[in-house]
Write a protein that binds this DNA or RNA. Structure first.
Lengths: 314, 314
DNA sequence: GACCGAAACGAAAATATCTTTCATGAGTGA
DNA sequence: TCACTCATGAAAGATATTTTCGTTTCGGTC
């Protein structure tokens, strides 16, 4: 029978009425404090518990009793002495302790990836790096410039996006998104066609160049053409002082993180660029909400039949 | 100890989800990933568990069943679905999670992006969400499957990658990277051509499908064709129990985060997929280091002249 | 050295908890 | 509408935990 229903309440206030609430992480200390007052068998149990919380958490009373060469009763008695209602609760605390220890160990990540890193480390390091990149990008993004770019995009008659290589994929990503909310956008990865199209742009249109180095000629040229035609130009680059910014009305800076041999710069610049692009998209979607929302819904609807049932097993 | 692994179907299946050992902190992510394939009652249980780990850890099966208005059986079933041998183990993991949350950083308050959020908030929220997605993905990634996929890619005579829409860009990203280290890879976004090419694959080749829903026919078909031809098949999907996994030797699960109107699922799934793809790439680069390193250097060199001076001001 | 009392200890019973089985009913597609 | 599947919970069946209680061990005393 539980009458403890108010969910948002104290959380871990067990109430109970007992004298000692469970100990969170002070377990090792408690063991040392109480050890003198323990019998020999209990000490063995306490020692095992303090020595390998994670391991013990995986054991049942019987298991721990066997491991320490004692009996179930002794294990329970020890748990009681340590302040828990029973072994079950000690075990829970042990699991918590183990998790804490584990997570505390995590930040010891040297960010460089070595050739012989185990795969699990690779995952952790890459995830960490990309998280870092995101944080840096968000911190370094000029919201004024971003807002201006959003306004321009939202009002544009049409938008052209330029990007080559990895940045080309980001360009396509943005284009796909803009199309989804009913805007007219096009991603160019053929430099010649890009220029050809750029000269068609005029005031009120938007040209957006994505280049990490800021020096990719194939991307700068069309932006320049658009710029000279009077279109509003935006550059997403990791180098705010690079050539591309000469022709950009608004510059959005992506962050540049350390690169290493196994982790080329393209990787983090892509992450960074995508965040910027997402911000642009959401900003534009906000501004054009009345038309964007139905458009999004419609495109979602249109795709629904291409996927199987909504359930896992169609 | 029970070895209840009954599901074993014949053939060379990756096991749609039975492979994962207990998840430590990836629980919230796992709940989100698996929720779609859950029944209503199970969802209620999963929700309670994800919403208040600490509280649930204090409950017995019966207690949790009562709290969620379901039965013990359902609770156990949910625990199983989440990857634990039984409720007892889920409870232990819950205790660990609670301890982590408590000792760890601030509570993860994720507010949905609203139409009238100022642009600075949009940036912060998007960055935070994507960071969360990365963490979840890393935590939930099965390194065994990842390692197997890496080994297959590194040894492949050739690799075909399938993806449509946003996933198509991820497919291209992977392809670009693999090409850079001298492997033979191709990204297909034309379903017909993809199938046509898939039937050319044979044992030792790798086919890799990227689909968030796991139910995109255009992507499943070529994977199936490759599978039937004896190629090694890999699926990157957010739904480990979806149709695509039927034809996948190795399944890499991406995380699914909350989506909202202004932040479509595609956004976080892309982030998640890219992390997985990066892990694959780095893993392969490690394994083929002797040939990958020079290839990387060469491609870098070849591109150098396309960018202006190495400095910002040309 | 033998004996006594108290505490420690573990075997096994008693209880709580978890897991499995099975019948039932809701929902679904033909 | 009917047959069928699948989700669901009640209760039986297994495990794990707690309690009980008798045996063993230890320290001291005669």
């Amino acid at each position: 029978m539980k009458e403890t229903f108010a969910h948002a309440s104290g959380g871990r206030r067990a109430g109970g009425g007992g004298t000692a609430p469970p100990a969170p992480a002070a377990l090792a200390a408690k063991v040392r404090t109480l050890a003198p007052s323990m019998t020999r068998s209990m000490q063995r149990v306490a020692e095992a518990v303090a020595g390998d919380p994670a391991g013990c958490a995986a054991l049942t009373v019987t298991g721990l009793a066997e491991l320490t060469g004692t009996s179930e009763a002794t294990v329970v008695r020890t748990a009681r002495l340590l302040g828990y209602p029973g072994y079950r609760d000690l075990r829970l605390a042990l699991a918590g302790l183990a998790a804490q220890q584990q997570s505390g160990r995590a930040p010891a990540i040297t960010t460089d990836i070595a050739v012989d890193d185990p795969i699990a480390d690779v995952v952790a390091k890459l995830a960490y790096d990309e998280q870092q990149t995101l944080a840096d990008t968000a911190a370094g993004l000029d919201t004024g410039q971003l807002g201006a770019a959003v306004a321009a995009l939202a009002a544009a008659r049409r938008t052209d996006v330029y990007g080559i290589g990895a940045s080309g994929l980001v360009a396509q990503d943005l284009t796909q998104k803009l199309l989804r909310i009913g805007l007219i956008a096009h991603a160019h990865n053929d430099p010649h066609l890009a220029v050809t199209n750029a000269v068609q742009l005029r005031a009120g249109d938007v040209a957006l160049a994505i280049t990490h180095s800021g020096s990719t000629g194939d991307v700068i040229e069309p932006l320049r053409a658009a710029f000279e035609r009077g279109a509003t130009t935006v550059a997403i680059t990791g180098r705010p002082d690079s050539p591309v910014t000469q022709y950009a009305d608004h510059v959005l800076t992506t962050s540049t993180s350390r690169e290493s041999e196994l982790r080329p710069a393209a990787m983090s610049s892509r992450t960074s660029q995508l965040l910027v692009v997402d911000c642009l998209f959401v900003g534009v979607a906000q501004r054009t909400y009345d038309s964007a929302a139905p458009a999004l819904a419609a495109s979602y609807e249109a795709l629904a039949h291409r996927h199987g049932g909504s359930r896992g097993r169609p």
